[in-house]
Every structure is written in structure tokens, then in C-alpha cells.
Amino acid sequence: MMTPVVELEAVSKHYGALKALDELSLSVGDGEVLGLLGHNGAGKSTTMKLLLGIISPTAGQLRVFGQSPTADDAQALRYQLGYLPESVSFYDLMSGHEVLLYFARLKGVGKQQCDELLHRVGLGNAAGRRVKTYSKGMRQRLGLAQALLGEPKLLLLDEPTAGLDPLATREFYQTIDELRRQGTTIILSSHVLAGIEQHIERAVILSNGKLRATGSLDELRRQAQLPLLIHVYGSWPEDSWQDLQSIATVEQITAGQISIQGRLEDKIELIRRVLEHPGISDFEICEPSLEALYSHFSSDQANREMR
């Protein structure tokens, strides 16, 4: 069996009484794309800083490429890592090209790769401009170019799409997909869950420094047993939805609208029966989103169930 790229065993990080991370165990395989999900303060950034060796754990074991990132000889490890911190504004007085060149020198990367990366992230034309004039999205792209210096084997991206407009977000995820095809292991964190689904293979849900759930999004959906919700619009005689009562809960919202709550597994059956009814003019299906999943796993109720 291959050694996992990242391995955490009951890792804790405490700041006084604050438990930023509480006995987190996690392993990430080679080439995997992992989503680290949770609210602000859930422990996502702390996890990344631990993996980078910027801070050392209060307790527990952690290894990156089989090595402790805080060991004395861990300096070499950092050539293989790329990191994009949560909000980085860079040096206002330097041009984008100068900023990238500075970081490239520290990583022992040549000038040519800087030019390539600037073009790749779409900053080719703005490379000579001062960072001061950059928009939030451009700074984020510069940050991504910086993270890709030296073709790292493990990428840690902290809230990479925060503050990006939809177009920039889509372009960003295209880059992620490309890197994924090249076999880069990627850990990316987010508190905005929309749009992340198609791009990650596995999700880890954190809240208050604890691991709440892990698995593929399908597995998590099944685990959570979140209901399927169907809104139906139209006009129909009273008591006409009796036939659904056996497999779903039907609730009258207004005179011309009802909501049907059922199990995800019964989706096809429910829709078939809804469509058989005369008098419906429209319907919409609300599948449980990642948001609903997330609030399910990080709610207090879920915590109690887990104990």
C-alpha cells in the first residue's frame, strides 16, 4: 500500500482554552482532491498551517509525504508544497511580475516559469503593473500563480474562491480540474459550498475544531438522510393527495401550492405520482444541497447523535 500524502492522527491544536483543532484524524491519498468544509473558525486554516509546519501541534502525530513538517530537516519538504493563504494582498509597490519573481527565487524556481504561470492565470498583460492597482480577483490569481511555483505535489488552498465573481470562480475551478488531471494532490477549504461539488472527490466537514463527517458527497447525503422537497403549483380538489401520504408528508402552503417531503430514494416514484395528478401547472424539486448537508452535520443535534 502506498503511503498517504497527508496523515493526521488525533492531532490537536490548542491556544489556551481555545481548541482550534481537537483530535483530528485524517488521511489524504496521492492525487486526491479533498474539500475541507466548515464555518469560519472551524479549524480549516489551522489544519493547513499545521500541514505546512508554520505551527506545531499541541498533541498528536502528523506527517506530510511521510515526514513531520515541523522537524528540523523539514525545509526540503516545502519545495513540494504550494500554499494559497486565505487573504493575501501582497506588496503594493511591486509589480505582479516582481512579486512572483521574489517568491520564485525563494523556492529556487527560474524566471521563465514565472512568465508561464502569469500567462496561465491570465495576468500576462497586467504583469508589469503595480499590485496596488490589482482587483481582488487579480490578487487571488497572483496568489494561485505563486502557489503553483515549482510544480508542487501537494497544494493547500485556503478559501481560494472567497471574493471572486462567478466567472473568476469558474476559471479557478477549471485550473483545479486541470491540476487534478495532472495528478496533483489538492486540499482546498471553503465555507461557501456552492460550486465546489463537482470539483472535489471527498469532503471533510469540520466544526469547532472537530471532524463531523467525511466521505464522498453521495455518501454524506445518504448518511445524513436529508429529505427531498417537491413544491407543486396548480389547482386541485381537496383531499386529492391522499395517495402520497403513505410515502411522504404533504403540507398545504397556500390554496394553489403544496410541499411534499419524502425520502431521496423515493424520488422517481414521488415525481411519477405527482405528474399523474390533473390540475398541476408547475413543480420544482429541491434536492438537499451541500449547505443542508453541512448544517446537518455541524448542528448541535448532529453532535449529540455522534456521541
Binding site: 505546512l52 493563504p85 493575501v88 494582498s89 501582497f90 506588496y91 517568491f103 525563494l106 523556492k107
Partner: peptide
């Protein structure tokens, strides 16, 4: 404050 310290600390520089 500008976030670059975190970045520098993740580089191969002590």
C-alpha cells in the same frame, strides 16, 4: 497584516 508572512513561512526559508 497583509498576509505575506504566512506565505513566507510556508517557503523553504527559516
Amino acid at each position: 497584516n497583509q498576509g505575506t508572512l504566512l506565505l513566507l513561512l510556508s517557503y523553504p526559508i527559516s
